[in-house]
Design a protein around this nucleic acid. Structure first.
Lengths: 199, 199, 199, 199
DNA sequence: AAGTAAACGAGACGGTACGTCATGTCTTGTC
DNA sequence: GACAAGACATGACGTACCGTCTCGTTTACTT
């Protein structure tokens, strides 16, 4: 269970990091984003709502984006795990449906969308977002696909990354444009891009 | 060809809008975004670079987002027209390839990505963006598809909107995550989602 | 009856000055000062309330101070004439009492106070204020005093200007500090500074 | 010797007020008024010249008028103390002469004139000016007078406040109208309004 | 138990941008 | 040519956050 923040830090003396403050910041950020949108997500507002000094935030997070990344990594690990066993076509379809539900229904989905957005505005965010979230998750998804291919369950018409983008892209795009994601769309994507051998 | 700015406004007397100022603002915004990123795109910076008073900007645009929308509408009309004649599978493939090139190569493509991003942060932007850009363009794209179906050139496996999202989504998603868009991806999407009757 | 504004102007061709506009501006300025104070007295507000274009104001008055001067000269000529006949000690006392009433009661008195104030802030105002109002009025007051001395009615203990300042100063000062001006004060000043021969 | 600024403020923790910034603001305001007049006295200009952030000014002073009041209170306490011992007619004459010199010669005198002026334009200024400057000083002056009377040194022909206004009014009025203040004027006022028993 | 050092709340500070207002100049079309 | 209308460049307004920097207080590990 690695902490998302910089270093565990084992000081030779003195106080340790205040876990209550860390959680308060994370929750305050989450709540502010959910309740008032990204525009209201300022360091000052987070500090105010968390009952924490600004300095405490700056001490542990280089930017508010990293706070969001911390919450996203934690939440998406819990609410949207990449299937690691029995990678059938069916389980992949299930993962994509969960992903659609996560994006449109879960508050943490809003965090993901906000980070995709912020990455367009700021190169530093893009860098961090890839290294801490997109990259690791993509690795897991590639694994999932590879195991499905090995098991003869699927036979994609595209290379691994292109396949994932072709599956995930429409879902993300619809979420970004505020559209709903009908399960028929997911099914059709899986049907046509993974070509399960059953056909 | 509707003007991108608020209202044509034909006052019975008094000065008319200064076209030079309008263009200076549009170009300043474009240039700032391209050169220094969205973070540097402040109303003050636009005014400074355009040699224009802040008030002149606020007089004609409710927000900097509308400035970007104006440039996007103008530029994407010029650099990325939706094919209106002979809608063959081939011309649709061409349109999508142009779209990919627009997103990754054209400065105006960055504007589109920035607006998608900003729409996540601000509901007002989302609203405006849909009404002034996404909606009208989607209408043209639906038309293109419909004429292709009528001509017997294509036979999509999904409904019109879902088809477009399935084609465009992966392209946009790769652009948003900073990935290149190989033409093989576009070809495969067209191949598998439009099922041209020639197969 | 000289017009207070620049020149009567007898243009060889074209329209003449619009008297209605001139009066509208004067009254608007007066009303705004009376109703909302000097802070609300902007050229824009005057134009708005007078139903007049800003340019019309700038065409005829170099600054809003000159507008106030125009109204002050007109009003103080009407409401507070310097006694020109029979300059007895009594009539001088009467003039000073009228002056006190003018300053504290008449809306035009507020204009005078506002001009004294504005003259502290702006040298141009000071210059104009002296030449167009204070100077001429002081000349009349000096005349009044001189005729009183000639008639043997009064015998001031100070020179003419110092006498007038010693009489007028306390009245103005109390008005400036928002204090009332009891008639006893005026009487005592006259009593002790003019030394009427009756004593 | 009460501090001129709002509240001493003794927060239980956190940074204290930066005395250097406070002085820089006071001096910047003084200097700007002296060098470029009231028109140049903007909060932005003060901040610029003091090398201080605008917010620092707004944090401690509700308006630029209060800055001037702070400097006036400090300077007039130093350069123009009200005599507290041996209140002879002579010492009162001296005080009035000092007052005249203060108004026409001392930079802080310009501050006093500017505040009298600004009080005409803005009721808030008037209120503050009375409570923080005019009132307390008037109290001291009344004391001075009362002790002079008790000592049998003077015997004014008017009540206390009227006497002070009759003495101070002409001095202030001449300063406001840009006139010099000859010592003969002060002497004559004292002579005729205080009736020292030696006559 | 006393000493010490980091983390903490509070918040002042120099900045930058916000969106609004008034300035004085100008241009356009009407009378 | 005067006028109403109003666009324009300029610059100050007062507010909100930014990220940095002290302050004292608390806390927990030394010694």
């Amino acid at each position: 269970m690695p902490s998302a923040s910089p270093q565990p830090r084992r000081p030779r003396s003195g106080s340790r990091r205040d876990e209550a403050a860390r959680l308060a910041v994370l929750h305050a950020a989450d709540d502010l984003l959910a309740e008032h949108g990204f525009g209201a997500l300022t360091v000052e507002a987070i500090a105010r709502r968390a009952g924490v000094a600004k300095q405490t935030i700056y001490r542990w997070w280089p930017s508010k984006v990293e706070i969001l990344l911390d919450t996203l990594i934690e939440d998406s690990g819990k609410h949207l795990p990449v299937p690691t066993e029995k990678p059938t076509a069916e389980s992949i379809r299930g993962y994509l449906r969960d992903f659609a539900r996560f994006l449109t229904g879960d508050p943490a989905g809003k965090v993901l969308l906000a980070l995709i957005a912020e990455a367009q505005h700021d190169p530093g965010t893009a860098e961090s977002f890839h290294q801490r979230y997109l990259g690791p998750r993509r690795d897991q998804e590639r694994d999932m696909l590879a195991r499905g291919i090995d098991a003869g369950e699927i036979s994609p018409v595209l290379g691994p990354d292109a396949t994932i983008d072709a599956l995930v892209g429409p879902i993300v795009y619809r979420a970004l444009t505020g559209a709903s994601i009908p399960s028929g769309l997911v099914d059709a994507l899986v049907e046509n891009l993974l070509r399960p051998r059953s056909i």
